[in-house]
């Protein structure tokens, strides 16, 4: 399934990962490598388990009482599910943007400053101001909110909220960024901004983007993984997946025959 020749610089590796919600299996035996300095796109029909798999990578499934994860997931060779792995530290290193925007009901400034503050990343108020401005600017939101940083984050439009959540995630400077459909609530201009941001960030982080937009996957990613019914059907270079898929199901999906 995995094309070993193209995958070398692995930031995260997953081997034989299965996830159950109670007795229902949502992910079956998925093995995948997430590369440093690359963007990996997860595509697949709704309900196929993209979000579920994404959440295993930073152990957000721990918060769901019924969820059970099996298999081996490593970040820089460290076992993510090991007993001695500090989950808090892990999540600071593997940031996440959720499918539904979830800003804190606090000011825009506080939303972005919260992560750096709890991790002690800013040495002074001016330092914090810089981090907030830079994060908002990268998420393409600075121009729209710079005059109302003290307004509530929840008073923004849906698309603005999503960009605020992205700014909040990159403010803590993670090593891996997991984005679950970051553009599903955005207009084309904001989407372009996010894609630009992904381009800009990929030099420094490993990025995973879940998307339903085939063009977007083709535009922003270097690797693409196609999920179907909880299985990883195909994984490889984005250009290969989109021009020359090996699996029938992949071809059907990207040409819009189902999904």
């Amino acid at each position: 399934m995995t094309d070993k020749t193209i995958l070398n610089d692995h930031k995260m590796t997953a081997r034989n990962v299965s996830v159950w919600y109670g007795a229902v299996q949502a992910i079956g035996d998925v093995s995948i490598d997430i590369d440093q300095d690359k963007v990996t796109a997860f595509i697949g029909p709704s309900g196929c388990g993209k979000s579920t798999f994404l959440r295993t990578l930073n152990r957000m499934n721990d918060t769901i009482a019924s969820a059970r994860v099996e298999g081996d997931i490593r970040l820089d060779g460290e076992d993510v599910y090991a007993r001695e792995m500090d989950v808090v530290q892990l999540r600071a290193r593997v940031g996440m943007v959720f499918q539904k925007p979830n800003p804190f009901p606090k000011s825009i400034y506080e939303n972005v400053a919260y992560g750096p503050r709890i991790h002690g990343l800013a040495s002074s108020k001016a330092d914090m101001d810089r981090i907030v401005e830079r994060s908002l600017a990268r998420a393409g939101l600075w121009g729209e909110v710079k005059d109302r940083l003290s307004d509530s984050g929840t008073a923004l439009s849906g698309g603005q909220q999503q960009r605020l959540c992205i700014a909040r995630a990159i403010a803590v400077d993670p090593e891996v960024i997991l984005m679950d459909e970051p553009c599903s609530a955005l207009d084309p201009i904001a989407t372009a901004k996010i894609e630009e941001l992904i381009h800009e960030l990929k030099g420094r982080y490993a990025i995973v983007v879940v998307t339903h937009n085939m063009q977007q996957a083709a535009r922003v990613s270097q690797r693409t993984a196609f999920f179907h019914l909880g299985q990883l059907v195909e994984y490889g270079q984005t250009s290969d997946i989109f021009t020359n898929p090996r699996e029938e199901r992949t071809r059907d999906y990207i040409t819009g025959r189902y999904g």
Partner: peptide
């Protein structure tokens, strides 16, 4: 309190 708020904070590395 919406669970999404807890998720948001946890995903930022809040204990």
């Amino acid at each position: 309190v919406p669970p999404s708020i807890r998720d948001a904070a946890l995903a930022l590395g809040a204990s």
